[in-house]
């Protein structure tokens, strides 16, 4: 609960600050906080990935982008009243809906009684893998992972193409 509150505070900082360098570093701290929360929520594999990818790779990418662009954000010209209003209305609607959701940590919710528990029972006899997350990732949902690698590959090609054209147009000038 403390960690979650801390995360909310960091996000307020991200929204208010105008120096992009500080924003990027804060979002890195935010990712580490998220990783700690995920450990508390028993998602150890996800926490490791979030710490490595969210706090590590994303931050490096953002800093690289900042190095190639500008560090200071311009002052907003419009009053942010309309977006604020939209955000508050959506938030209120979601909070109203969340009261009907099952309580935190309940074992007998629909989420926890269908396939999830089935994987826990079937993992050892069917695949022999102790870590259920990796057995589901690689065996039962291998196609998801294949699709994921396709997305990453496409994004890599996209970035390469974007930055390559860059160089060519520069040499023309």
């Amino acid at each position: 609960m403390v960690l979650l509150t801390l995360m909310a505070l960091v996000v307020i900082g991200v929204v208010r600050l105008r120096n992009l360098f500080a924003v990027v570093i804060l979002s890195s701290a935010y990712s580490f906080l998220m990783a700690s929360v995920l450990i508390v929520l028993d998602a150890v594999d996800v926490a490791m990935t979030e710490a490595a990818v969210g706090a590590g790779v994303s931050t490096v990418l953002m800093l690289a982008a900042l190095y190639l662009t500008k560090v200071e954000e311009a002052a907003p010209r419009h009053t942010p009243l309309l977006p604020m209003f939209v955000a508050v209305v959506i938030g209120a609607a979601l909070v109203y809906g969340s009261v009907d959701m099952p309580n935190f940590g309940d074992a007998f919710t629909p989420v926890n009684t269908h396939v999830g528990s089935g994987y826990l029972v079937r993992s050892i006899p069917e695949t022999g893998v102790d870590n259920v997350v990796s057995s589901v990732l690689a065996s039962y949902r291998g196609y998801d992972t294949l699709g994921e690698t396709v997305v990453v590959f496409t994004a890599g090609i996209g970035v390469l193409l974007l930055l390559r054209r860059n160089k060519r147009s520069r040499s023309k000038d």
Binding site: A65, N112, A155, R165
Partner: peptide
């Protein structure tokens, strides 16, 4: 705890950083 959401989110994190990289590439451009 339920392993299924963990698997889905592992995929989401990796896809997320890929789209972020593409977005930043566009910003630089």
């Amino acid at each position: 705890s339920n392993p299924l959401p963990h698997v889905l989110i592992l995929t989401a994190i990796v896809v997320g950083v890929a789209t972020l990289a593409l977005g930043l590439g566009l910003v630089v451009r």
